[in-house]
Write a protein that binds this DNA or RNA. Structure first.
Lengths: 138, 138
DNA sequence: CTGGTATCTGGAGCGCGCTCCAGGTCAAGG
DNA sequence: CCTTGACCTGGAGCGCGCTCCAGATACCAG
């Protein structure tokens, strides 16, 4: 069974060493193996779990919620239904977030187009009176 | 010319009073009018500008960058080209961010489907040996 | 065995983006 | 007028998610 040193786990997961230790301390990582001397030993499964953490983290789940999820995961398959609930709720949140980003992206491109039109029509002095802070349209 | 009290500006912009004051202190808001007694008076243009700030903020632009943008805006139309550059760069960042969110959303739904399949096929004991931490597919 | 690098622990510190507070001033209704 | 609620300033405090540090220990190549 392949195992990984902390440095390797850090490289593969993309989390810093300090973050890995921090995650263990606060309960996001659990049952991490140790050598006789007390150094951490990461397994493939640990790396898979870190992948899950990365997904949740990157999609904006707060650490507190991730702790709840980790707690459920630690308690075995009897918590599957609850875990499903958590993930579904998070997916809804995520969708909302993406939606507002897409919306604001439109505004942003509206402003960009406005500036582009300014660059093109530069010699027109009347255009300079327009309000750059305002959205280009009504 | 319509003007707004701080409370009204807060309500319309969605920023708290404290945030509006904070934004003025750090230079995101500038040339905000005052009454004889020193109370702020917001104009329509100020609210438009707050809309811009909201867009940039919600799309994840750091305050430091917004200050740069505000500084440019404060210096009139001669900075249009630079402002355009800033917005374009931000739009690229934003696109990248949305892309990773959409990607991770797929992972998330993959995990959700996995849990759903567990719920359905519950009586199969072999399924319980599968690793919930791992992504369902390759 | 020895030296050098990797890792350990507990705890302090940091950067960001607000948010709250104290102690006072302003403005509008009665 | 006078009260009452909105607003003012400067500065401290906070929640989050790490990140850094000191001082000690573990592992491994030579």
């Amino acid at each position: 069974m392949t195992t990984y040193t902390p440095a390797a786990a850090s490289a593969r997961s993309g989390f810093s060493l300090d973050t890995l230790r921090y995650y263990e301390r606060i309960g996001l990582l659990y049952d991490i193996g140790r050598t006789a001397g007390g150094q951490r030993v990461f397994t493939e499964d640990d790396l898979d779990w870190l992948g899950v953490l990365r997904c949740l983290r990157e999609t904006g789940m707060p650490i507190a919620d991730m702790r709840r999820y980790a707690e459920l995961a630690r308690h075995g398959d009897t918590t599957n239904a609850e875990r499903l609930r958590v993930l579904r709720e998070h997916a809804v949140e995520l969708r909302r977030h993406i939606a507002t980003l897409l919306e604001q992206e439109q505004h942003l491109h509206g402003k960009i187009r406005w500036y582009e039109s300014q660059a093109d029509g530069e010699p027109d002095p009347a255009a300079l009176l327009a309000e750059p802070a305002a959205a280009p349209g009504p």
